[in-house]
Design a protein around this nucleic acid. Structure first.
Lengths: 237, 237
DNA sequence: CGTGAAAAGATTGTATGCAATCTAGTCGGG
DNA sequence: CCCGACTAGATTGCATACAATCTTTTCACG
């Protein structure tokens, strides 16, 4: 398979080749097609996309910055494998940032934006109703895009980029530590958030967004039972 | 001049060469030794640090991610030249994030951390009292490090990295749009923040941090009078 | 003399080659 | 039989070479 087989289907791909590869890899990681810890060999990725290692290295460096890839010197790049502690930090960051973003979005939202929110929620509902891994990936993307649209409407490009990183890494965390999918639950909360946004009720909106994040985190199993910690406990340290 | 002339003087330089060059360039940009808009030629930087363009490109890509460098395809990299709007977004982001970080830091601070804060404030005072561009650069660094220490004590690596970016970009913004240096004013507020932190008064701390950011932004001249907008207005568009 | 096209020079984007490092498999000793 | 050292293969880090693009200078034409 080469990149050309899917070039037409891609979303907002950058025009530069490194950015395009980064976008494709990110989609695969966030969509859980690439499991955490998977080795991303430069030669292999390069062969897949028909580019040299130079371009692949640039793409991997970008993903490393976003925290989706862990790069180890002389060893290569791997899909990130966030620890429970990192997971907590990711959600603590979202808990701090997103209610504020929502307040700002509430002040700036207009009819066009509300339509885009509604379209995303409809897409999300449609994918939840569908079966198959393709639908799961699309559902994850729609759910994340809901939060990103909030940041976009808020009109702050920096916070939007922070949110892109946090939402992407959240998907990895949920893949690793998610107890249930809880997608229908999250979806219902998205509807409530849109209601508050449409009503212009900034306080209710901020509260709902905060609770939404709490609920997602509450569905995680972040007990210190990862491989390394478990071993450590097993040895009685 | 080569990198070796200063290698011993560096701070926490990464062991990899691209990271080292990134750190050196960042220090120069944040310390206002490199003016916004300055071209960063790959060959020139490479010659200066005695590495190939490959390594320089990696360093510049990192700085582009941090928003300190603007990279234009086929044209090269330039020290970032944030617009007034970007400046507002930077400070809006800090206004949202930093009070929350301060609250978290308040809950986790210990005696050792308080000593580090005190040392930074003393360093800042010392550099303010000194003359010369070297002292100005050190003063800027100490002031920024105060905010970064707050994020470090808060114990969230993700927010700490966000703050690193925001503090660095703030320095660029102040260099471009700062009315007065107002360094003594900021320094006094740092003392007040440390007081609240030592007292464990999270509410007062969060309020002081928020006001501190407001004061820094208030000292900026962000009227839409940049080059391009002025030209646009002059042409009556 | 001013304007625009065209060519020369400079700079970036990408591919490739070599050295250094890591990994895996093999062999010998205990 | 298990463990460690050693060697062969694979992979990454970096430098360099070439192609594509941009910039500047030159020069012809109006």
């Amino acid at each position: 398979m080469t990149v050309h087989d899917h070039a037409a289907a891609g979303g907002p791909l950058s025009d530069d080749r490194a950015g395009a590869i980064r976008d494709r890899l990110r989609l695969a990681i966030v969509g859980r097609k690439l499991a955490p810890g998977t080795k991303l060999s430069e030669a292999e990725v390069g062969a897949l996309f028909e580019v040299s290692r130079t371009v692949v290295r640039a793409a991997l460096q970008m993903l490393a910055f976003e925290g989706l890839v862990r790069s180890e010197r002389n060893r290569g790049a791997f899909v990130a494998n966030p620890s429970p502690d990192e997971a907590r930090q990711i959600f603590a960051s979202r808990r701090l940032i997103e209610p504020g973003i929502a307040r700002e979005a509430c002040a700036r939202v207009d009819a066009g934006a509300l339509e885009r929110f509604a379209a995303l929620i409809a897409e999300e509902a449609s994918q939840i109703a569908s079966a198959g891994p393709q639908a799961r990936q699309a559902e994850i993307k729609a759910s994340g895009d809901f939060h990103l649209l909030l940041a976009e409407v808020a009109g702050n490009a920096i916070l939007h980029r922070f949110m892109e990183e946090l939402v992407a890494r959240s998907s990895l965390v949920i893949a690793l530590y998610g107890r249930s999918d809880a997608s229908s639950c999250a979806h219902a909360e998205h509807r409530g958030i849109l209601d508050a946004l449409a009503a212009g009720d900034a306080n209710r909106l901020a509260r709902l967004v905060g609770e939404h994040i709490d609920h997602i985190e509450a569905d995680l199993d972040l007990a210190p039972q990862g491989r390394a910690p478990a071993l450590k406990d097993a040895l009685g340290l």
